[in-house]
Amino acid sequence: MASEIQLFAIREVSEMTGVNPVTLRAWQRRYGLIKPQRTEKGHRLYTREDIDRIQSILSWLEKGVAISKVRPLLDGGMEVPAAQDEQSEWVEPMLSALSECRRAKLEQLLTQLMKEYPLSMFIEKVVEPVDKQVKDPANPLGAIQKSLWQSAVVEHCASLIAKSRKRGGKKALLLSFEPAQDGMTHTIWLAALAMSHEGDNVTILENLPFHGKLHGLEAAVSQQVFEKVVVIGESKLPQAILKQLARLQAECQCPVQLQGSIAVIHAGWQKPQTGVQNDGE
């Protein structure tokens, strides 16, 4: 007797592939790239073949192929294209909208790209090159573009995070002691969005004082019953803050993770008695 086909819920598939449910639904509805089965209540169920197909989609996207051009490649009806120009495909429309101060167009592009591409890929192939362009000292429109880009990304992330809070999830606190000296604070919001995709109910505290003890942190974590604390940053943290984070975990039974360059900078600092976890691997 043939064994039953193993089926996976959309949340399981998201965890296995790193593609959030919103993107999986967009690939199905708009492009017909995957065709999951349905339960009687309408919930999507995916087979192993579906998961393999998702991995193939990711492979093509990594090569710079636009999501709208992936289906013929999957179905074998189109020759493998030459190396794609990711700058023109994904970045140039965004830069054009920024140059022309077209906020509506910028929001439209953000909505489309953040829905149709995994967040990590969106950050690598869109956010990072756009950041580089708007921060270029030779860019005469840099100040205006940076301000518009910053506000658009933050507002879009905040909207998506607010929607995710309705689903509940594990309460998490995301901290940043990084000074916003270059005006590019959207990094923490993108990190918070990534956490929300993983099922966390995220509270963000950014631009925290860099020197001295952060008063009230232990009380806030304890009273709000946060289940984890994530600290994101690129600059070395003072010892006072590191010691407070260690006490936080020890006294509140709340795991602390370091993310970004600080996970590498303070890798040697981690000791068993501190209890602070390193999320840099």
Rank of each mutant, 00 (worst) to 15 (best):
Y117Q: 08
R30I: 05
L109V: 05
I5R: 11
Q28S: 12
V153N: 13
I232R: 12
S151Q: 12
H43P: 01
A250H: 10
I144G: 02
V70P: 04
C252W: 00
T39F: 06
E227M: 00
K236G: 01
K146T: 12
L193H: 08
S147W: 09
P140I: 13
R29W: 01
G18C: 09
D52N: 15
V154E: 15
G42Y: 06
Q277F: 06
G32Y: 04
A104G: 01
I10V: 14
I241K: 13
V256Q: 04
F210T: 14
P238V: 13
D136R: 06
Q112M: 11
G64H: 02
T111I: 06
Y31G: 07
K135H: 15
Q270E: 11
V256A: 04
Q112C: 12
A143D: 11
E124C: 03
A240Y: 02
S261D: 12
E15P: 00
L24F: 14
Q181M: 04
L242G: 05
Q55N: 14
M195G: 04
E62Y: 00
H266V: 06
P209D: 09
L242N: 07
A250K: 12
K135R: 15
E89A: 15
R30H: 04
L160N: 06
A172W: 01
E86V: 12
P272W: 08
A180G: 01
P72A: 12
L205I: 02
I188D: 03
Q37E: 08
V70I: 12
E4K: 15
Q6S: 15
S14T: 10
I123T: 10
H43R: 10
T187N: 07
L242A: 06
P118A: 08
R30Y: 00
F226G: 01
K125W: 11
L7V: 14
L98Q: 13
F177I: 03
Q273I: 05
M184I: 10
L245M: 14
E124L: 09
S159V: 02
L217P: 01
S99D: 13
L160T: 03
H156I: 02
L98E: 13
T185Q: 13
K63S: 11
I144Q: 07
V91R: 01
P21T: 09
S235C: 00
L74A: 10
H186Q: 07
A194Y: 02
K166D: 08
Q244A: 07
V225Y: 02
A97H: 14
P140H: 13
K125F: 09
L148Y: 08
A143N: 07
K63G: 03
L160E: 11
T187E: 01
A194E: 03
G216F: 12
L61S: 10
E155F: 04
M94R: 03
S56G: 00
V264I: 01
G183M: 09
V65F: 11
D200R: 08
K135A: 15
L214R: 05
A66M: 10
D75M: 15
S88E: 05
G77T: 15
I67W: 13
A152P: 01
E218D: 06
L148V: 10
L141R: 14
S56M: 07
